[in-house]
Design a protein around this nucleic acid. Sequence first.
DNA 1: CTAAAACGTGCATTATCGTGCAAAATTGCG
DNA 2: CGCAATTTTGCACGATAATGCACGTTTTAG
Lengths: 256, 256
Amino acid sequence: MLRSERHSRIMQQLYTTGSVYVADLARTFQVDAVTIRRDLAELERAGQLHRVHGGAMLRAGQMAEGLPSLRPATQQQIERRIAEAAARFIPDHSVVFLGTGALTRAVTPFLNKHTHLTIITNALDIAWDIAQQARLAQPIMHTLHLIGGQAAPDYGLYGEDEALRRVRADLVIFEAGGLDAERGLTHDNRDCAHTTRMLLGISSQTVALVAPERVGRAGAIFIAPASEVDVLISGHEAPTPPLWDLSELGVRIILT
Amino acid sequence: MLRSERHSRIMQQLYTTGSVYVADLARTFQVDAVTIRRDLAELERAGQLHRVHGGAMLRAGQMAEGLPSLRPATQQQIERRIAEAAARFIPDHSVVFLGTGALTRAVTPFLNKHTHLTIITNALDIAWDIAQQARLAQPIMHTLHLIGGQAAPDYGLYGEDEALRRVRADLVIFEAGGLDAERGLTHDNRDCAHTTRMLLGISSQTVALVAPERVGRAGAIFIAPASEVDVLISGHEAPTPPLWDLSELGVRIILT
DNA sequence: CTAAAACGTGCATTATCGTGCAAAATTGCG
DNA sequence: CGCAATTTTGCACGATAATGCACGTTTTAG
């Protein structure tokens, strides 16, 4: 394993979990702890992280708002752009379902401009965000409906399919782990994939949020053919060839 | 867990709840209370918080929006005492339902000492607290199940009675708006009263948390006769005559 | 005033760190 | 291709930091 390869994977780990441990890294990379320390020392000199006893953490400025969104700033901006585009898609006084995932959660701050939405979700974090917003801004009060179920590490609530079957929505917004003309709509999480599959049936319009790097790629679990997606929202960084194929299937494509 | 990781999570907790307790943090992070005190001392030297006997609070100027601790300190301590007594009632490996309300929510910090609970709730705030705790302390992971429904201003989720009918629990813990031998178990919130009424049927043991000043009084909506309550937990400030009457009905009374 | 809880501190234990040095791998050059 | 220079890595070991436990002191609550 190359030294710089290790460095980038350390940073990657750091951005996803917020902290890294010397002992863990030494074990995963099969190198001595001393080597990891030297790596961390170098990355710290480069200003990429902040060393602490036992490991390293992101530098103060890199950590937006404490814990949430430990992803790098550029990633956050892409998320924000996609989320804002998705919010523009929501008509006032409509019923909208929001699925799980960081991209979908990023939509919630933009819902304040709308008047009287009915928001249905199976994501605990999204529900909390919206409930908190309702607290802060009294005048705006959307109706929030939560689908029950067992809480998963991704804040998703799964297992109450009956409740899902009883709802309908004007618009379904969800995050896809992968979207490709040939391999269809996919996700890496089994429960989330199952829920998304059910969501496609409860609404006349389906909006898939896809991270630019996931366009034209496929996740582990198949959900539905790509033609089931009405609108794809992603970033302009997405590769264009897969987009053409999707467009031919009737998917409306929005890049921001 | 890294030291600085603990620090940032302590600050996070502090910003969300307004105050932290040494004992709670020690349980959550699975470390000795001494370690937490040292953490708090360090954070205080850095000007991040203000230490007090038993824990720490945000510094005067930091009060963000005056969000937390709308209740006076004494009220909070009564809450805490009742909540701790309720937590002692929960056996390990059991299925426990937590209803809505501030008293019930106060129970969640004490659930860290238990091993593998299955927690069912219809309260969005409680679900969020527990999910966050699971994030903080990796080793401890309870199973969390959320009853869906429409979100109300009290963070309760109401309207999914079918889901309620399908669950059972070893123990139901809920907050009563009033408890009196003659007028029975009552609440001021119609939805909450309805949910509580259903809860009485799903478990063999029912625990009512009642604020001391509500003992012997009655709320707007009747829920059930007082004899339906197995255990009443309140503070020692509660008036004694009503307690005698309740005791004669077979209600086990615990005052803290 | 008394009992219980929380606190601070010293000390032992354990984990982590930094550094010098040698082995191994990589690179550069004839 | 050979060989020396350079870089990278691993190991050893003294130094340092973090943590838990014990015990005497202080604070709190009734």
